[in-house]
Computed example of a mutant assay.
Amino acid sequence: MIDSGEVFAGYTVERLLGQGGMGSVYLARHPRFSRQTALKLLNPNLYTDNEVRARFEREADLAAQLDHPSIVTVYDRGSENGQLWIAMQYIDGVDAATVNPMTLPPERAVQIIEGVADALDYAHGMGVLHRDVKPANIMLARSSVGQGERVFLTDFGIARLREDSTHLTQTGMFTATLAYASPEQMTGGHLDPRTDQYALACALYWLLAGVGPFDADNPADIIHGHLQLALPPLAVRRRGLNPALDAVLAAGMAKRPEHRYNTCAEFAAAAKHALTTTSGPRLPTPPPGAVRGNPVVPPQHPGAYPAPAQQFPPAAPVYPASPQPGGPYAGAPHPAAPP
């Protein structure tokens, strides 16, 4: 822990913002520009691994080259006292994981995803995959005079570092949050921009339904759902949503990447259209020779993932379709998502 007022890597620490599995985040002030910065200190055990340290430097430098209004800017990185650190843009707001879907209008949920989709497509055009898209890595900046709420995507490169630090990539495993991980991540398959699209679709499902698409207490059941089960319809979670959203989400979360949308923006546009359409959803064009549908992808080790007792998790309490008094968000302020 670093105390308030202490100087670390030249930055004056003001207070702790949050802690996570990878380390801690502090609000700090730049020594020369006097701007507030989110200073992420990664756990010391990562510093002792030369391969992870080299990966961190490459990924942080790559993330620093991303220049997009919806991507949290990386200012600098380095090591100090046996710890790796990243200085990033400080976002005064909350992360999307603190949003209460019970009071979040579906239109706003899709608007959030639209902002993230544009950021992802830009990063993909730069040759960068995120690999860990989830509500906790989506920041919602507070409104300022004359501006609406802004959406930011954070933690580019951290997902790869998290993988390397566990030494599990050789077995095809991963450490991205299970609720948002694609089948190809789970089976050690090839990753491309449609991997991030799958996670983005999972995030939209959560923003609409309040739970992940294959919510379960047992991680093996979550894995089984991603690999083999059809997407549970939103109606079992929340009434009042256009059924066309189910088809769009299912396409964005197709088991095979080639059955998903071409881009994240195309998926987000289809989701926006599905909110009110009466003529049917906009679905991706199947690749040549493919049969439309969502084929089952078997696990690499048959029998490794036991089937849950039922295909869909028990229905949660029905959420109202319109916002409730008190605003769309719930939860304490969370200015920066811990790594």
Rank of each mutant, 00 (worst) to 15 (best):
S165G: 04
E163V: 01
M88V: 10
A136N: 03
G115M: 09
S144P: 00
G82L: 07
L153H: 10
R160Q: 13
V133F: 02
H130A: 06
Q147Y: 05
V151S: 00
V133I: 11
V110C: 04
Q83R: 15
P106K: 07
E80F: 12
G82N: 04
A136P: 01
Q89V: 07
R142Q: 07
G93P: 00
G148P: 02
M88D: 03
E149G: 02
V116C: 06
D155W: 04
A96N: 02
L161H: 01
V145D: 09
L140Y: 05
F156T: 10
A141D: 00
G127C: 11
I158D: 11
V128S: 02
K134P: 06
F156Q: 11
E149M: 14
V128D: 01
R162P: 01
I158P: 05
M126C: 15
Q83P: 07
V145Q: 12
D76F: 04
T154R: 08
G82T: 11
I138C: 04
P101W: 11
F156E: 07
A109Y: 10
A159W: 07
Q83H: 15
A141T: 00
L120Q: 13
L140W: 03
H124A: 12
S144M: 10
H124L: 12
S143A: 15
R160H: 07
A136M: 05
W85D: 13
T103M: 09
Y122T: 11
D95N: 15
V145T: 11
D164F: 13
T154V: 12
D155K: 05
Q111Y: 10
D76Q: 14
